[in-house]
């Protein structure tokens, strides 16, 4: 198959074989150095992972950073619905909303790092002014320098600590994430899905005298179910494997490791501490979770997709 060959070779060398390689490596003490002899260690890496406090703390960070996903998803839906009504300037709005997704990268992370600067960043300047004007006795948060979080997660152990309640680095990353994603790809997907909802369903609902909410819950929402399902699964996978770029650029995982996610931990283990075997085990654990989540999602999702 001459047509397939180039792509298939690349696919085999850079995807298929590495996946199997990494699975094998997950059961070894592989370090990529000659001083430590390569050994098959069986489930040792998995055992280590289960007893690795850092692993659990960073798993919790990863999950906490995903708190923003529902806001981003429902925000996208809201924007798509607002845009889907023959508005003047629809394309202009769409362009503006898509801008953060399109320009997403290190430049935007450096921008947000400056915005969040607690001393002279514009966010805290505005907050200080606002608090002062309304005579609210509050200090603006230290954002990227703070271990606080809205869930009051303890930075030292898996658990809560009331003293840690507030807005901190993780919340800053969540807000930035929502800002980037809300008008992006998910919004475009919802927009396409809304365009394809059969118009007679709305007409029938109008004849039945359904109000706006009723129409939304009985017509729009079920019709969008496949899209919502797809977006949710993709966001979930993105959330579980994400968080490296912004933490590396904006906080280097600080303060006190609160912005280290599993993908960042994987990077630290593999490329800073060169424990390739253990890092492979972490990445496969993540892959396994994603696999199970996708399968479960598919089972429930196929019901929701039904006869759409």
């Amino acid at each position: 198959m001459l047509f397939l060959l180039p792509n298939f070779l690349g696919f085999a060398v850079f995807t298929a074989i590495p996946v199997l390689w990494s699975l094998g490596a997950a059961f070894t003490n592989w370090t990529m150095s000659n001083t430590v002899p390569l050994q098959w260690t069986g489930l040792e890496n998995l055992r280590e992972m289960l007893h690795d406090t850092e692993f659990w703390l960073y798993s919790l960070n990863t999950l906490y950073l995903m708190v923003g996903l529902p806001f981003a998803i429902f925000g996208s839906l809201l924007i798509a619905m607002l845009l889907n009504q023959k508005l003047r300037g629809m394309v202009v709005y769409r362009t503006m909303f898509y801008l953060p997704t399109f320009t997403n990268g290190v430049a935007l992370m450096i921008l947000w790092k400056a915005l969040y600067n607690p001393d002279f960043g514009p966010i805290n300047s505005a907050l200080s002014w606002f608090f002062h004007a309304l005579r609210i006795p509050l200090e603006p948060p230290a954002w990227l320098l703070s271990t606080h979080s809205l869930f009051a997660l303890s930075p030292e152990r898996v658990g809560f600590d009331a003293k840690q309640f507030g807005l901190g680095a993780r919340d800053a990353l969540i807000i930035m994430g929502v800002w980037i994603a809300i008008g992006g790809n998910n919004m475009l997907l919802y927009l396409a899905a809304l365009t394809n909802v059969p118009q007679d369903l709305y007409e029938a609902a109008a004849i039945d005298g359904a109000g706006r909410w009723k129409t939304f819950w009985n017509v729009t929402w079920p019709q969008l179910a496949p899209t919502t399902f797809f977006i949710t699964i993709m966001s979930f996978i993105g959330g579980l494997t994400g968080g490296f770029d912004q933490a590396r650029v904006m906080t280097q995982g600080k303060p006190a490791g609160t912005t280290i996610t599993l993908s960042y931990y994987n990077y630290i283990k593999a490329f800073e501490q060169v424990q390739m075997g253990y890092a492979s085990a972490i990445s496969w654990a993540l892959f396994a979770i994603i696999f199970v989540v996708t399968l479960i999602g598919w089972k429930f999702g196929s019901g929701a997709m039904g006869d759409v």
Partner: peptide, 26 residues
């Protein structure tokens, strides 16, 4: 079958293949 294999790998997170690819480049 080959196409399904392709589809299946879309689910694999990048960090799984990162380490072997790094080793290969080294």
């Amino acid at each position: 079958t080959v196409f399904k294999l392709y589809l299946g790998t879309l689910m694999i997170p990048g960090i799984v293949t990162m380490i072997p690819n790094y080793a290969l480049m080294v």
